[in-house]
Design a protein around this nucleic acid. Structure first.
Lengths: 212, 212
DNA sequence: ATAGCATTGTTGCAATTGCAACATTTTACA
DNA sequence: TGTAAAATGTTGCAATTGCAACAATGCTAT
């Protein structure tokens, strides 16, 4: 997976950040970033540490929306952050860079090759984001829990060309991803097992029908 | 809304397309484009005419996924097209440009300002796509039809700062967008009306609660 | 090693939803 | 303008789902 500063030297990275008038922030562990950084069309980059975009609904249930590691990006234009339900919190001491989005789009330094590399990296990251969201929409728009699960398994198994699907997260998180109730999902998984469609062993699901 | 060739002169546009080794295709009205253009990481641009991305499910139900006008873009990396259920069909005589996606990312003509403008336009279009998809996910992940409708109305009314929401498409299309059954939606809209939350007159919905 | 917390599994039940079937209204266009 | 197609409205019913409540298991940090 491409990262935002790939193929840019440390020296050019420094120049780039100067040109884009990037601002640095440091946050202690377990701090809400949004309370300090006032959002208005910005792009953020995690330079050190670890953070998460968290959603807390009106019942107090917390869900992880996105995990952000070093060189991962976030922003008003590409993440769900505007809504009050969302927050960006650090899980370790974390350093971030904040860039006004318009400085990226209106930057006149077209002749600088590192700037060009930067926008192309951004383009590729955005492309991946769009693909991921299309994929999730594809799954989530199925009408029944059974069909959501089967579509998810199908996509995952095709991706790896295997009848084995390894869950990249917990079953609880899978229910969140599919936007369905966890216990209702567990029930449907049991049905699929009983009917011989799948086999589940820990986080490994085996597809017993041909679809990969 | 920004278009892909904005701020690029006709002359530079021609140069750009030569550099990117763009290919031209012409299609008669009501033609499937995917049968001619073999997909493998391409970006497509509609230069003349009108086309739609259509999904036909196994029951034969057809849904409009995206409408594509002049200067609109589509592609393997940004549209749902890989799946067999999807097709791209022309509704008029239509001309398109097809560019290998890698030619955009690996293009060495960094010094050409029109190339730079092109990638920035692309960046902005992608940004909008990501925002739209985040927005739809935000709505669609609500658990009940009522909450999906209210979230949709809330977002729309905040966008325009008004208690009036004008549906930009039919109610049938709204049900598709929300990924719910049309008649179940009609039932819930009636409930919302009866309970005094909204007023519906044609495609204009009036929010009778404070939320904008 | 273990206390405490997160994850997983299960089930009953009420509420929500999809679907079928149909009537009515609106729209598009020949 | 007339007509076919599309959109909208309605309702019964069965199936699906969310939710609450709980037990059991797994994981992690001190």
């Amino acid at each position: 997976m491409i990262k935002i500063f790939d193929n840019i030297s440390a020296q050019n990275k420094a120049k780039l950040l100067r040109i884009l008038k990037a601002q640095n922030f440091t946050f202690k562990k377990d701090t809400s970033i949004l309370s300090t950084v006032k959002l208005e069309q910005i792009l953020g980059i995690i330079t050190k540490g670890y953070a998460e975009i968290i959603r807390t609904d009106h019942n107090g249930n917390r869900t992880i929306i996105e995990e952000l590691e070093e060189e991962d990006i976030f922003g008003t234009e590409i993440s769900s952050l505007k809504n009050k339900e969302y927050d960006l919190v650090t899980l370790e001491d974390t350093e971030i860079i904040v860039i006004d989005y318009n400085n990226i789009l209106n930057c006149e330094e077209n002749n600088k090759s590192f700037y060009n590399t930067f926008t192309k990296n951004l383009l590729q990251i955005f492309t991946t984001k769009i693909k991921d969201k299309n994929e999730r929409l594809e799954i989530i728009t199925k009408k029944t829990i059974r069909n959501k699960l089967l579509e998810y398994f199908s996509i995952m198994s095709k991706k790896h060309g295997s009848k084995y699907v390894y869950l990249p997260f917990t079953f609880t998180a899978l229910a969140d991803y599919l936007a369905i109730d966890r216990t209702a999902m567990a029930r449907e998984l049991k049905n699929l097992k009983d009917e011989g469609f799948i086999e589940v062993k820990g986080k490994r699901i085996t597809l017993l029908y041909q679809d990969y």
